[in-house]
């Protein structure tokens, strides 16, 4: 999608559908979600709580919790399809090729093992090195993520570290087998504000050093604006808009994205009237027909209530799922 090179993207998600079979029918939590992440790129993923951001990450690394399942679509990692791999093959991808950072550092670490034990175990699961070598790497990694006196602190238990320090440890663990892609699911939400920027910086810098790509899930547009190369906006399990971050922040095309940015660009009125979108995201069992956003959309028209808009490439270099832009594309 970035179309900068003709190499296949590092990660390519195509028409991903995730469903939860329940007694009262099947809930479709992700509906034909498509996006790419290029080599070395930081893709921000935003959306309200419940939009499906975490599920997207879980589906990519093959850790959807039953009864949730991938009901359609494909996931490709560097040209290799990974959504239909055997359990064992998928396990070897987790940690080794795709690392994951979760939201809450206070609960992400096993309280009964030292940081050293958890790091060394992870390294040696994926890389054939001696215990001693693994320990050396672990200390270097802790040092790199900014743990002071890493050589000594490595033998401490998680509860000896503060929240921010624990999230650094979590990042070190996620990166310990040198993955090509790191999925960070709201990595700073559980931290106090003062430490958030540092954690994001550490994550971004290390990944940049190693050439690893990042999928950064957050609902903080400020973080996205500063960190991401491109941003993907998810609404009710559907992709609303994807594009280079500067363009999307400055001139959102999808009305929902515009609402998120605190401004609705219409021809007749200026931004100050709506900083919050009225209403709330529909529950999965009550997604309206047509465009999922139509009950809340300030620019809704008849067609929005009848037909669902596809995610289409726009001349502006982004992808948008909104009927407002359909005719234009056809003309391009």
């Amino acid at each position: 999608m970035t179309a900068i090179s003709n190499k296949p993207p590092l990660l390519s998600v195509r028409d991903l559908v995730v469903e939860f079979p329940t007694r009262r029918g099947t809930l479709r939590a992700l509906d034909q979600v498509s996006f790419d992440i290029a080599e070395g790129e930081v893709l921000g993923m935003v959306g309200e709580s419940g939009a499906g951001k975490s599920l997207t990450g879980a589906a990519i690394i093959g850790l959807l919790e039953p009864p949730g399942r991938i009901a359609g679509g494909e996931v490709w990692l560097r040209g290799e399809r990974i959504d239909n791999l055997s359990v064992e093959k998928m396990r070897r991808i987790r940690g080794r090729r795709i690392g994951m950072v979760f939201q809450d550092p206070l609960t992400s670490l096993n309280p009964l093992y030292t940081v050293a034990e958890q790091l060394i175990e992870t390294i040696r699961t994926h890389i054939d090195v001696s215990e001693k070598e693994a320990r050396k790497r672990a200390i270097a990694l802790l040092d790199r993520v900014g743990i002071p006196a890493a050589a000594r602190r490595i033998d401490d238990y998680p509860h000896h570290f503060s929240g921010g320090m624990r999230q650094r440890v979590v990042i070190a663990l996620a990166l310990s087998a040198e993955p090509e892609l790191v999925i960070a699911d709201e990595p700073t939400t559980a931290l106090d504000v003062s430490g958030q920027a540092q954690i994001i910086d550490v994550l971004k810098d290390i990944c940049a050093e190693r050439g690893a790509s990042v999928m950064l899930i957050t609902h903080d547009m400020g973080v996205i604006a500063e960190t991401a190369d491109r941003v993907a906006v998810l609404y009710a399990g559907r992709m609303a808009e994807i594009g280079p971050v500067r363009d999307v922040v400055q001139a959102a095309e999808h009305p929902y994205t515009a609402g998120l940015m605190g401004a609705i660009p219409t021809l007749t009125q200026t931004a100050d009237r709506l900083t919050q979108i009225p209403g709330s995201m529909p529950r999965l069992n009550a997604i309206p027909q047509g465009c999922a956003f139509n009950p809340r959309c300030p620019r809704v028209f008849d067609r929005c209530r009848a037909e669902r808009p596809e995610l289409i490439a726009r001349a502006s270099g982004r992808h948008v799922a909104c009927w407002l832009y359909e005719t234009e594309t056809e003309n391009v």
């Binding site: 850790l63 987790r94 940690g95 994951m100 979760f102 992870t122 663990l173």
Partner: peptide, 11 residues
């Protein structure tokens, strides 16, 4: 969470 994270590390 720590079990999920352990699985996510490919253990």
């Amino acid at each position: 969470d720590y079990i999920k994270f352990a699985r996510a590390r490919g253990l």
